[in-house]
């Protein structure tokens, strides 16, 4: 089949960027969306043009690297599916696909369909862990965790950090992502001791990263490849509310958000430097 791909092209983060239309003939219905882009890129390279830059790695829906908007829906029309596992049989011959990167202030563009998602790392860095150093652990069965609780934690822990929730939210809110990690750790007995501290720190960082707020409309969970439930946001809100009023000390130290991907240190004495 034949498809019309209208793809957002942007050379660098400061460029303006624009849509460019490409026709891809011989699209096989068995192909994944990313393989369709591979095919397009091969023809672009052969023509001497720059291929479309897009993020991808495992191509089996778990690493969370890939993702873009297809016709206004994050990860495209199939529920619970990342673009790397989205096969082309879901589209019709001759259809036009509008392909756009995630758009949010916190996810500034890098190139074409690639955006910077380090804000997510910052949120985890602020407190998305259980503070246990290597070697400190008691026997695995010393802490009993009921199956219900383990399952609930796993539902939240399944998050792959792809950013589709932010992309789909009209407010560009990261509540589902942050809530998923808070819920994962807060329902487990191992995570209880620092539940308050974690909620305060992660929420503070989420807000510092200039994400929008949650209006509970549920677009995020609709596009989530792992179908993380909206319930995790309530867990975050509950932990935050509780911690805000019961915690004895005040703290809301946050990490400064990134605003660009810096050029990095220049070599001091470079033998072959061209500049």
């Amino acid at each position: 089949m034949k498809l019309q791909l209208k793809i957002w092209r942007q050379r660098t983060s400061t460029d303006k960027g624009a849509f460019v239309s490409y026709t891809v003939n011989d699209v096989d219905p068995e192909m994944s969306m990313l393989e369709c882009l591979d095919v397009l890129n091969e023809t672009l390279i052969e023509r001497g043009e720059e291929p479309v830059a897009f993020e991808h790695d495992c191509r089996e829906g778990i690493c969370g690297s890939c993702g873009f908007m297809i016709n206004g829906v994050a990860h495209g029309p199939e529920r619970a599916t990342t673009v790397c596992q989205l096969t082309m049989r879901h589209f019709k011959d001759g259809q036009e696909l509008v392909i756009e990167p995630w758009r949010a202030r916190a996810f500034f563009p890098i190139k074409d369909l690639i955006v910077d998602r380090r804000a997510f790392d910052h949120i985890i860095e602020a407190g998305g862990y259980i503070s246990v150093s290597t070697g400190q652990a008691p026997d695995g069965n010393a802490i009993l965790v009921g199956k219900d609780i383990a399952d609930q934690a796993m539902d939240a822990a399944a998050c792959i950090g792809c950013g589709a929730c932010v992309a789909a939210c009209p407010n560009a809110s990261a509540a589902l992502f942050t809530g998923a990690k808070i819920a994962h750790l807060s329902v487990l007995p191992q995570g209880k001791p620092e539940r308050d501290r974690r909620a305060l720190a992660m929420v503070a960082q989420m807000n510092a990263e200039e994400f929008g707020n949650c209006t509970s409309i549920g677009e995020c969970t609709g596009v989530c490849p792992k179908e993380i439930p909206l319930e995790v946001i309530a867990t975050m809100n509950r932990d935050y509310l509780r911690a805000s009023w019961t915690r004895r000390e005040d703290q809301s130290e946050t990490i400064l958000p990134f605003t660009e991907w810096s050029t990095g240190s220049k070599l001091q004495s470079d033998p072959t430097s061209r500049d």
Binding site: Y129, I130, V132, T134, G135, Q136, A137, P138, D139, G140, I143, V145, G146, K147, A150, D151, A153, M154, A157, H184, L185, L188, Q190, G191
Partner: peptide, 13 residues
């Protein structure tokens, strides 16, 4: 296994 459980890895129970 002990280390991972302590970190909050939700192993099957």
């Amino acid at each position: 296994i002990d280390q991972c459980v302590a970190q909050g890895v939700p192993f099957a129970r």
